[in-house]
Design a protein around this nucleic acid. Structure first.
Lengths: 316, 316
DNA sequence: CCTATGCGACAACCCTCCGTTGTCGGCCGG
DNA sequence: CCGGCCGACAACGGAGGGTTGTCGCATAGG
C-alpha cells in the first residue's frame, strides 16, 4: 500500500487546474495517460478523487487528500535532495565555539535528515545578529542575550535546548572527589574564564548569582590554554556544558552541579522577514530531538537559569 | 523525478536488516526482486545506497537518505490515511462553544490534512482538564486559565491563536456608527455576558481592566438568547472574537476594538505523558496556520492580554 | 430540436519494465 | 583448497503504462 508519488503528482497537478488537458500538458504527457493515472490512484485508494460531470471538481475525499498529498510530495523531494545534494543549503552561524555548539545542531539535523547546512564564521551573538540582519547568514545558534539599541530588532529566536553545566577542575582540587557539587561549594575557588568576563554573559551572571568573587579572565586563547591552567591550579575551576566534549586525556574531572543545576540556554535565531526554506524542517528536527532527549526540561525549584533567559521559556 | 514509495520501502527494510534475503522475506518478495528494486532506486537517485562486499552496509549517501526516507514513507501513509479514513482519530474536546472554537481547529487541520479528528463533549476548561487527565479525551482546545489545587498538573499547553475581539451591539446603540471603538468608550454601556460572569474568566478580566461596571449576566441560554437581548437594549453590548460567526441577520453591528485591542488566547492542551500519535502533525498544522494567518501577533503597546495569559507568550 | 464544440472515458495496440527462475562469482570459515 | 552463503547477472514471460483513435455526454447557440 505504498503510493507512487508520480501518481500523487498527477493528482496535485490536476487538482490545480481542474482540467485534464491542461494538467496533462503541464506534466508533459497526454490527456489519456493522465486520466489513467488518476484512475489508477483512485483505484489504489478505493476512493473517487474527482467528480466528473462535464468538467471536473474535487470530491470530498479529494479535498481531504490534497493537502496531505502536497506534504507527501514535499517529503519525497526532501528525501531526494538529502541524497543527491541538490536543493538549498542553510548557512548556520554559531558562537560560543568553546562550548561546541555544532554538536547540537548536528544532532537535530540528523533526526530528520534532509537538511544540508554549512557552518558560518560566527564569532559572538552581536556579530551573528548583525550578519542575520544583513542577510549574510540564514540562521544563528548559540546563547542569546539582549542587545542594546535594538540591534536585535526584527530577529526571531527560539529556545531549543537547556543544557546543564558541570564543574571542571583538576584532580588536585580539594573538591575533586565529589559525585556532585553545589554552586555555593565553589565560593572559595577561582573561576577560570575562557575569555574576558564582560563578554561572557552566562559566566558573569553565574558568578554574580552564586557570589563567586575570585575570578580569573583574560583574552580567549582557546580551550587547550584554559585546560593547561586548570590542571596546574588546585584552586581553579570552570563550568562547561555537560555534553560538550573536553579534549581527551586532559586529566580534568567533570562533576555535575546540583541544587540548583545551572542551565545554559541554546537558541536558534533568524530574521523573520526572510525565512529560509529549510527553516521549518530544521525547527521540527530540534523539536523532535528536544522532546526525545529532554532538552527543554526546566524545574524552577531544581534548576537555575539567568533572569534574561526566562522569557524564552514557554509552554510549547 | 518522483519517488515510488515502494522502492523507498524496500530501501528502508533493507537498511533495517542489512541483509537482502531477510528483507525480501519481510517484504514478501524474492531476493532478486528486492535487489532490482534497490538497484532501480540507486539509479534513479544516481547514488549508491549500499556498499557491497560480502554482506552489505549503508553507504554515506544511504546514511543521509534513511531518515528522510522514513519521513517520506510516513507522509505517504498519512496521505493514504487521510483519504481512506483508516488510521487513528484524535478526540478534541473544546470549550467556550459560544465563541466557536471548532472553526480554528478545522482551519489548522485543513492546512496539512491527514488528521482525522472528532469533537468531544467538552463544557469548560476544568471539565476538559479532568477528561484529559483521565484519558477520556486526547486534546483540549479553548482559552486556558489557571486551575486551583494543581488540577492541571501534568498537562502541557500551547498557545496557538490570539484573536482580537470586536464589540457587538445594536444599531440603536449610540456608538453603533463608529468604525472602531476603544474599550474605555464602553464604560457607560452594559456588558451582556453569555453566562454567569464568575465562570467567564476572560470577560471578567476584561470588564475589570477597563472599569466596565454595568454588567448583566445569568445562566447560559445560548447565543440566540443573547442576541435577542442585545437587539432590544440600546445600552447593551458584548464582545466577541472577530472571526467567530454571529448568526446571520441578527441585525447587530460588529465593531473592532482598538487602543488597546483585547486578545482572546486560544490554546491546545494535552497530557504530556500520553501524547497522541497525531499530536505532532496537528501542532505543525497550527504552527503553519498561525504563521500564515498571523495568529500569534502581539504588540504590548497595541494589544491587551489578561495577565494570566502572558506566560503563554513566547518567542517561538 | 438539432448541431457544434469541448472534455473526459474507453478500446486496441505495443513496448517497456518488473518479477520470476536458474546460475554464476566472490568472500568467508575450516 | 573447498563448501556454503549471499548478492549479482541472464533469460524469459506477463502485467502495466503510454500511445493513437474514437465515443459518449455535457452545454451553448441557432
Amino acid at each position: 500500500m505504498d503510493l507512487d508519488l508520480a501518481l500523487v503528482r498527477a493528482f496535485v497537478a490536476t487538482a490545480g487546474t481542474l482540467h485534464f488537458g491542461r494538467a496533462a500538458e503541464e506534466l508533459n504527457t497526454s490527456q489519456q495517460a493522465l486520466s489513467k493515472r488518476i484512475a489508477r490512484l483512485e483505484e489504489l485508494l478505493g476512493v473517487r478523487l474527482f467528480e466528473r460531470q462535464g468538467g471536473i471538481r474535487l470530491s470530498e475525499a479529494g479535498e481531504r487528500f490534497l493537502p496531505a498529498a502536497r506534504e507527501a510530495l514535499a517529503a519525497g523531494e526532501r528525501a531526494v535532495a538529502a541524497v543527491t545534494g541538490t536543493g538549498p543549503v542553510v548557512r548556520i552561524d554559531t558562537w560560543g565555539h568553546l562550548y561546541a555548539p555544532m554538536r547540537t545542531v548536528a544532532e537535530a539535523v540528523q533526526v530528520l535528515g534532509a537538511v544540508r547546512w554549512e557552518p558560518g564564521p560566527g564569532r559572538d551573538w552581536p556579530s551573528v545578529a548583525q550578519a542575520l540582519l544583513r542577510g549574510d547568514t540564514d540562521l544563528g545558534f548559540g546563547r542569546v542575550h539582549p542587545l542594546p539599541d535594538g540591534r536585535d530588532a526584527g530577529l526571531t529566536q527560539r529556545l531549543v535546548r537547556l543544557e546543564p553545566v558541570d564543574v571542571v577542575l583538576s584532580p588536585s582540587h580539594p573538591l575533586a572527589g565529589a559525585d556532585a557539587l553545589r554552586p555555593s561549594d565553589l565560593r572559595d575557588s577561582i573561576l577560570w574564564c575562557p575569555a574576558e568576563l564582560n563578554r561572557l554573559d552566562f559566566l558573569r551572571r553565574f558568578a554574580d548569582e552564586f557570589r563567586i568573587t575570585r575570578r580569573h579572565d583574560g583574552p580567549n586563547l582557546g580551550l587547550d590554554h584554559l585546560v593547561q591552567h586548570l590542571r596546574t591550579d588546585p584552586e581553579g575551576f570552570t563550568v562547561f556544558p555537560a555534553d560538550a566534549p573536553l579534549p581527551d586525556h586532559t586529566g580534568l574531572r567533570s562533576i555535575p552541579l546540583v541544587e540548583p543545576t545551572p542551565l545554559y540556554a541554546w537558541s536558534l535565531a533568524w530574521r523573520e522577514s526572510s525565512r529560509h526554506p529549510l527553516l521549518d524542517t530544521l525547527l521540527r528536527g530540534f523539536t523532535e530531538a528536544g522532546r526525545t532527549r529532554r532538552w527543554l526540561e526546566y524545574k524552577p525549584q531544581r534548576d537555575w537559569l539567568p533572569d534574561t533567559d526566562h522569557p524564552k521559556l514557554a509552554v510549547r
